[in-house]
Amino acid sequence: MSLLSRFARNRLAVVGALALLLVLVMALAAPLLYPAGAFALVGPPTQPPGGTFPLGTDTLGRDVAAGIVWGARTSLIVSVAATLGAVVLGVLTGAFAGYYRGITDTAIMRVTEFFQTIPSFILAILLVAVLSPAVTSEILAIAVVSWPGIARLVRGEFASLGGREFVLATAGLGAGDARIVFRHILPNCASPLVAVGSLLVASAILFESGLSFLGLGDPNLMSWGLMISAGREVLRSAWWICTFPGIAILATVLSINLVGDGLNEAFNPGLRDR
């Protein structure tokens, strides 16, 4: 059975994938749908949903729908870039530790433990505050707090695969360390990595929203967290300003989690039947 059809066996994962696709299309099409940008003052302030503005306008007269669409872009850019950063850093350190073991392993694992004992959101706030709020510092901060999990996963995989016959055989045939690591071991831990990485995207979206909510997002980019934070003060009189971005965050994070589960099952067919 192909990977795709195994994935499709999980209906919820398919729903998640479709929802995610919608978010992706929104993010890509933002400049076409709302060419004036998310901050444009397009109508009277605090218009309820319906009419010209299907999701209403915020306290400055900005279209909430435009904010959702442009916010999707910000969320995806930040979360995907941060996840890639975390995966690259995590894979390199984890592979090093798991392949060479010994003192290298001990040293790297103590470093990851150091990061894991600091509450990650607090560390992210600190990093963004120090680097000054901008999209690059958000990406960096989220990557820095996310890599230890990946590193430990990869190290575990490498430690268990390192002693297998095919690795020993490759070494016996004279392959160098780099070839063994990247050609033979790494592809074998791709499946857990993809599953964990996809979940990392979801947590990165939450991180980004949280940072923006606290005013630590890039002030030039619309973000769902920023919209909630700006609309929070008028929650009682204009519920739609924070409700829709809230739903957007919920739906995106949920769909990524569903897709992550689906991938995990697709890579490990035994899991589902167990």
Binding site: F39, A40, L41, T59, L60, G215, P219, N220, S229, A230, E233
Partner: peptide, 12 residues
């Protein structure tokens, strides 16, 4: 917050 909103308005 008020000042961030004002900055967003000034930009527009």
């Amino acid at each position: 917050q008020q000042w961030q909103r004002q900055a967003e308005y000034l930009k527009q």
